[in-house]
Simulated assay, not measured.
Amino acid sequence: MGKVGKRIVAARESFAGKEDLTVEEAVSLIKANAKTKFDETVEIAMNLGVDPRHADQMVRGVVGLPNGTGKDVRVAVFARGPKADEAKEAGADIVGAEDLMETVQGGKIDFDRCIATPDMMPIVGRLGKVLGPRNLMPNPKVGTVTMDVADAVKAAKGGEVQFKAEKAGVVHAGVGKVSFDEGKLVENVRAFVDAVAKAKPTGAKGTYIKKVSLSSSMGPGVTVALDSATGN
């Protein structure tokens, strides 16, 4: 265990008995205990009162974090002709059509976001079993199936975050880096929570947002008071 063990023990001691903190308190605690040699991601997890197996309870959306994510997002675009050129000019890392499909089918997925023009969906559709489980399948509901590929690429590169409820009704995402100013992290957290709140599905009954937790990539988690997370 060595130094890593001591770091984890110390962090757990710092977090012990602390729960339902304000967003500000939680962010401060996480920053103070993130002592790895790399810039850890600040992660949020939201437990929702939904069952995503039912179509009217699926939670899905996208949010542009006001201060970005601090992550270098690699973007792949399925497009041809002028739209492919637009994607490249906007900063897309990978652009292609059938050739890109074959690359993905071969097991090489070297990107974090996938965008497609509508005419490419018959090709992209063949990749559902590969891209779907990784939450990379282009979807018009979150703006990744679009003719405005340049705007979509810039948004992805600029701090836009997609979210989707998993089987247990949990939504999670990275909302910045521990090196961020505390105020900027707080803004990002509240922007994310607000977006998930606005994405409440019609089939959700009872309490929608049950729990909000924050952590760093390698650190313990802490619960955040719901009224602080939602800004109410």
Rank of each mutant, 00 (worst) to 15 (best):
S213E: 14
E166V: 00
D110Q: 00
D181A: 08
A229S: 03
G158E: 03
A90M: 10
D99A: 11
T36S: 14
E40P: 07
G91H: 07
G159N: 06
A34L: 03
T69P: 02
E19G: 03
E25R: 08
T117N: 07
D85W: 11
G158H: 00
E24C: 03
F15K: 02
D110M: 00
N232Q: 12
V130D: 05
S213C: 07
K154M: 02
V222F: 08
D181K: 11
Q105E: 15
E187A: 15
G169E: 07
G5R: 12
T22G: 05
A26G: 13
G49M: 14
V9H: 11
A229P: 09
T69R: 06
K18A: 05
V95Q: 12
M1G: 11
V196P: 08
E43H: 04
T41I: 07
R60V: 04
R134E: 08
F180T: 00
L127G: 00
R113T: 12
G49I: 14
L48P: 08
A10P: 01
A152K: 10
G125R: 09
V75D: 12
Q105A: 07
I8E: 06
T223L: 05
G132K: 10
N188D: 01
V63Q: 07
L29I: 01
A116D: 09
V153D: 07
A191V: 04
D119H: 13
L48Y: 05
P52R: 11
A225C: 00
D181Y: 03
N135G: 07
A225D: 14
L136E: 05
K35C: 01
V212Q: 08
A84L: 14
V23H: 08
F163T: 12
V145I: 15
A32R: 12
V23T: 06
